[in-house]
Design a protein around this nucleic acid. Sequence first.
DNA 1: TTAATATGGTATCGAGTCGATACTATATTA
DNA 2: TAATATAGTATCGACTCGATACCATATTAA
Lengths: 188, 188
Amino acid sequence: MASTKIYDYIERIAELQRADSRRCTAEFGLQPVQLEVLHYLSICNQFSDTAKALTEYLGQTKGSVSQTLKVLENKGYLCKVADLSDGRITHLQVTESARQLLQKAIPSPLFNVACKGLTEQKNIQIESSLKELLEALLGSNNMKTFGVCSSCRYNTHKGGSEYYCELLNTPLQHSAEQLICIEHQLPT
Amino acid sequence: MASTKIYDYIERIAELQRADSRRCTAEFGLQPVQLEVLHYLSICNQFSDTAKALTEYLGQTKGSVSQTLKVLENKGYLCKVADLSDGRITHLQVTESARQLLQKAIPSPLFNVACKGLTEQKNIQIESSLKELLEALLGSNNMKTFGVCSSCRYNTHKGGSEYYCELLNTPLQHSAEQLICIEHQLPT
DNA sequence: TTAATATGGTATCGAGTCGATACTATATTA
DNA sequence: TAATATAGTATCGACTCGATACCATATTAA
């Protein structure tokens, strides 16, 4: 059965990625999941930089995520900012030192070396297959897509060339179009 | 850069796979890595069922692997058998209850559902891309391939139709041809 | 308007991961 | 036969992650 083989390859690649991530974050005193949290927060928009969004993105419980965030805050890689209109919500901002760290650690050496050894064409083909697999995983299991605004069905050009989110009823900054959003929906 | 996107997709898919694995092993009281160890041991040959091989397969240290194996042994999912010719080596055998568990837990629901929703052609295309990515990762980083005997350069048909390993100088059972081996080398 | 409920997040606990280090026992090499 | 290599174990500490219980703030219904 084909699904078993795809599972097998992903299981194996995932373990190698994890081991590699562990090795290359160790010098900064970080864990793999911590790096991933910083990575997510560095590429998400202002509606998606919360603990709640991370629980859905990572598929973990909010207790686990809360713990990870506490550690990252203590290490100076992120700071918490209270939401102005909803007292329950806390926004998470990555610090400058976190951005510097991300630049060094992503992508990890394992992938850097491997992808450089492949032709441009192979890179594109593999990338495209991974995109399809990810979308299948998310779609078939009714999970959120976490896509960017520029590919979102709620993104319109209300009254000119500005970006405007029809779901949240707010204009978007141009720089946000490539940030991922927890409310993202592919066009029907 | 393409390598970043491939890394991003794998990072994300890997985390989803891990969360899914965690959810579906929880009912058996297992951890993701424990399931992976049992999975490996259920599909490897008699030269590769050792703690040493697992450290290379998983990219972890021998101390970590040793701990995981101790837990699995205590839970009755594997037993240790001393090697007859080399007193340092211990072979690891999965028990019947482990095999039953593997059948239920692999592939995890996330992948089962997703792959069934894809066309046969897409399944094959994604599978092929993953195979190429994995081989690139292993090859570029000088890691072992852990392939099966039927695709190994050391596998010859010495004196007839029997499988024979030129590296270990021993005939192989027909049933071993689809088992993975730590000494596997792709043909040049 | 005030209770009930939903939502976002935190604190604590326990089993387990994982690398580091130090260790034992068996093989191989010099 | 001594030095070294190999396979594996034991212990420690920082950390993960789910479970549970808990605290605010919002929203909904009576």
